[in-house]
Design a binder for these strands. Structure first.
Lengths: 218, 218
DNA sequence: CATCTTTTGAGAGTTACTCTCATTTCATAG
DNA sequence: CTATGAAATGAGAGTAACTCTCAAAAGATG
């Protein structure tokens, strides 16, 4: 996908294409590993969409990706991880750090998400929706997703906020802040899903953050 | 619930003892079921504490509780549920509804938690801490706990807020509100755990809610 | 080409969970 | 107290996710 988009990429855009570029220059072994990894993920998601998550066995996925079940578990610790794992958090961190220093933590967060979200969203809105819906509908995935948000996104946000506010990441207020933000992000995600993907996710996120900053007036 | 609360129970205290009372009056079959259920849970938690969660098999639990593994799964759909399930949410709902109508949603929430939390906390602080720590340390339990908070506590809060604010429970702002509250509750829980149980959980919760209502000033 | 390292596959084993069916245990009417 | 119906239990077989071990294959390096 989107492999040879060469020139004319505005430098402001987070490096998702440079990503593809870099792959091409890796030692054979690494390249093969990445190819295998992607093959597993692609076939798995396809099979999940066709037959449902529970009805698809690791054996089937392995057969489709032409590897052994042993190998499957070398790439993904659990069947759930094939769906859960993504690489958004590092991008988020990068963009956040580039925000003008005069912004308050929450303003910087809003700006960051306004910068990043629409790009990801435009690019793969449909796939994102399908994947997210599956995560929410399959209990095992849903549970794992929450946990992955806690270890991933929450930690990233927490790092941000501690940095901008000059406080300790373990400070109870910094923690409360981060959890609240993660909360409204999840709320936005659910509203989006409830609308069948009709509502604009980036817009929902931005509005929720504004609402949060205003002290949730109800 | 709360069917035959006859005399002399101070109406302000949520009915956790009346609970025990009621059991005594049930048909034999029901009583036995509840006894079995409790036996399973008690032996399970003991074994988990002794040997660790993963190292304890359902077979061991069943043997200790003197039932068959089949029966175990009739009482608890998964091994995880033995740890996760609790009965706090209905109590919460009851107390919330009894709050003076002039309070705003967030004030009513704070008041509710100030009423309920200290009681539970005092009563079983140590057990609560052990159980909570295990839930956070064992990945499978952690994931499940988040999900159970979403289907349980979040829904209860959401009901509250919709009621008090006269809005639809599906309203994006109501949802954002509830998720943010759930977020800071989790933050409090983690701060508490980080302190090794030294910090006062009810106090943390109350402070986090106040901080949230103030728009998370950082 | 030869050697060293990493990746892979095959296979056996564990355990959570499901399903089915026969047996036991409680509830109730006569 | 007994007969009948209903609910709870146990036994056992089956599935699938995951773990571990070891030998074979493939890529890296001199």
């Amino acid at each position: 996908m989107a492999e040879n988009r060469r020139m004319s990429t505005p430098p402001s855009e987070p490096s998702l294409d440079a990503f593809e570029e870099r792959l091409r220059r890796l030692p054979l072994r690494e390249r093969k590993k990445l190819r295998t990894r992607r093959a597993i993920q692609d076939h798995a998601l396809r099979l999940f969409a066709e037959q449902g998550y529970d009805a698809t066995t690791v054996e089937q996925i392995s057969a489709a990706a032409e590897i052994s079940p042993s190998t499957f578990f070398r790439y993904f610790p659990t069947k759930e991880d094939v769906v859960i794992e993504d690489e958004y958090d590092p991008v988020l961190a990068e963009v956040f750090r580039a925000q003008p220093p005069e912004l308050s933590p929450i303003e910087a967060l809003r700006a960051t998400l306004r910068d990043v979200f629409p790009i990801v969203y435009e690019r793969e809105s449909a796939a994102l929706f399908a994947r997210t819906r599956m995560m929410v509908e399959v209990p095992a995935l849903r549970a794992r997703m929450f946990d992955s948000m806690r270890t991933g996104t929450l930690t990233v946000i927490n790092g941000f906020v501690a940095e901008r506010s000059g406080r300790d990441p373990a400070d109870p207020e910094v923690q409360a802040f981060s959890w609240a933000v993660l909360g409204v992000l999840q709320a936005a995600m659910y509203s989006w899903l409830d609308s069948g993907g009709e509502l604009d996710l980036p817009g929902l996120v931005d509005r929720n953050l504004a609402f949060l900053a205003a002290g949730l007036p109800l």
